[in-house]
């Protein structure tokens, strides 16, 4: 081991690293919000939607979950311009990741919905609530609480997967790391630094998710 570590050579690139970190954070946060909404809607359709919509939701989930994310991103970024739909790298990244997360979270949320006892749904109907009201007031909250750990793991996985969008040129954290590596040839230092940043991000996300859990499900008693 004669390698001499020179982390100081990264200092000149701290603006690039911060820029990448911010984009990774923004991309992850926006994707989680959009993906959660897609997931809830699709899961609701798959468990209680009308026939045709249920089929469409199933096709969506199966298509996305059975094809690589990289291929989905390339279709959006390199393929759609042929049809006249052009997105920047960041837009394509947000769209691709949201569609992907939507499908995965839909399946997790569906598991939660199906864990709610039939008797509670029947009780809701007996009280005169319609299908939407039962879903909104009886099912959803319990479903999300039941699958909260699985769902947030998926969100953290999503945050780590944002590194893939560097291939279409989005300047997120990993893209910036590759850029710095191509300039300094300090691969070990660059990727070690990036590893630590990702680790920090994961811990941050875990903390935020734990805080949300406490605020939403613990402090406020389940209705």
């Amino acid at each position: 081991m004669n390698y001499s570590f020179r982390f100081s050579s990264l200092l000149a690139y701290r603006d690039e690293i911060i820029e990448g970190l911010l984009l990774t954070l923004q991309l992850s946060a926006a994707t989680i919000l959009i993906g959660l909404v897609i997931g809830v809607v699709i899961a609701a359709l798959r468990t209680g939607g009308p026939g045709p919509l249920r089929s469409i939701a199933t096709v969506y989930v199966e298509t996305i979950r059975n094809t690589p994310l990289l291929v989905q991103l390339f279709i959006i970024f390199f393929g759609l311009p042929s049809l006249g739909l052009r997105f920047t790298a960041n837009e394509a990244a947000l769209i691709g990741l949201s569609i992907n997360l939507g499908a995965y979270s839909a399946e997790i949320i569906r598991a939660g919905i199906e864990s709610v006892r039939k008797s509670q749904i029947e009780a809701g109907h007996a009280l005169g609530l319609n299908g939407y009201q039962v879903f909104r007031h009886v099912v959803l909250f319990q479903a999300l609480k039941a699958i909260y750990p699985a769902l947030t793991s998926q969100f953290i996985l999503l945050m780590l997967m944002t590194s893939i969008v560097s291939t279409i040129g989005a300047n997120e954290l990993f893209h910036q790391a590759s850029f710095i590596d191509s300039r300094t040839f300090r691969s070990f230092e660059v990727y070690t630094a990036i590893t630590l940043i990702y680790l920090g991000l994961t811990l941050l996300f875990r903390g935020v998710f734990a805080a949300i859990y406490w605020c939403v499900f613990v402090r406020r008693p389940a209705r």
């Binding site: 970024f77 390199f78 393929g79 311009p81 042929s82 052009r86 790298a89 291939t167 279409i168 040129g169 893209h175 590759s178 850029f179």
Partner: peptide
């Protein structure tokens, strides 16, 4: 400047108008 992994990907980005 948009940087890609290799010449082929950069060329795809050009050809698709990205």
């Amino acid at each position: 400047i948009q940087r890609y992994d290799d010449d082929a990907t950069a060329a795809s980005a050009y050809l698709s108008g990205q």
